[in-house]
Amino acid sequence: MKNISIGQYYSANSPIHRLDARTKVLLAILYIVVSVLCKNVFAFALLLISGIFTVLLSRIPLRIILRSLKPIIIIMLFTVFINLFMTSGDRLLFEWKFIKIYVEGIYNAVFMAVRIVILIVGASLFLTYTTTPIKLTDAIERLLWPLKKIHVPVHEFAMMMTIALRFIPTLSDETDKIMSAQKARGAGFDNGGLIKRAKALIPVLIPLFVSSFRHADELATAMECRCYHGGNGRTKMTVTHMRFSDWFAMLLMVALGTAIVFINIYGKGYSM
């Protein structure tokens, strides 16, 4: 487990990497909204083109992006089939017993596939691939800052997220070590039935719990020793500023959204 990577950050120097993390969070949200808004065939075409453009701009190899689609392939196929067989329309294309496929069904299936791909690729491109987890939590903290007015502990939430992320590799390392130690004492983890396997995890889980509490304790002490007292009056070591490129990127996204809404209303061709 030595090579475990948290999130899927892909280090590169692209225009998207250089954007402020706050911009990328907003872009991701907007992109999701835009892809859900799409209805017209030309709107979907535009969406697809914008997606390809973003991928090219991010300078992330295609095979890495395709990897992010792997976990949702089942859901995608399911949606495609549902749309293919369940949509009824005027232009019947194929009929066999109770199965009827309409041209509209094919359209809808393709639309849904495009929408899901753009949804996932867009969100992971802006958030996980081009932004480090630390920058991301920082951005969320700053975006949610207004909520402080109604006494939401924004800083504390962000700190908890950061700490949780920080400890994933530590705990995975520790799990590895404890498993090796128990294996050395003859514990088996990959044989026997379900109950036997679950039981075999006890010698790993208990030490793991104990050590995570120990880590938490030690970290709390260390933070207190360095006079940590929460978010009040705390300044940042590096403060990022919105630059021209950030505003420009958001403008592009808003333009895309407007164009898609416009096409939805006035565009010719098939509409969902």
């Binding site: 520790e174 070590k177 404890i178 090796s180 130690a181 128990q182 294996k183 050395a184 004492r185 003859g186 088996g188 006890i202 010698p203 208990i206 030490p207 104990v210 050590s211």
Partner: peptide, 20 residues
């Protein structure tokens, strides 16, 4: 291989963390 592990006893670093 588990038979080998009974013949060769390994005490890892900081073994107290494996007590459960």
């Amino acid at each position: 291989i588990s038979k080998v592990r009974f013949r060769v006893g390994l005490v890892m670093q900081y073994p107290e963390y494996q007590l459960f």
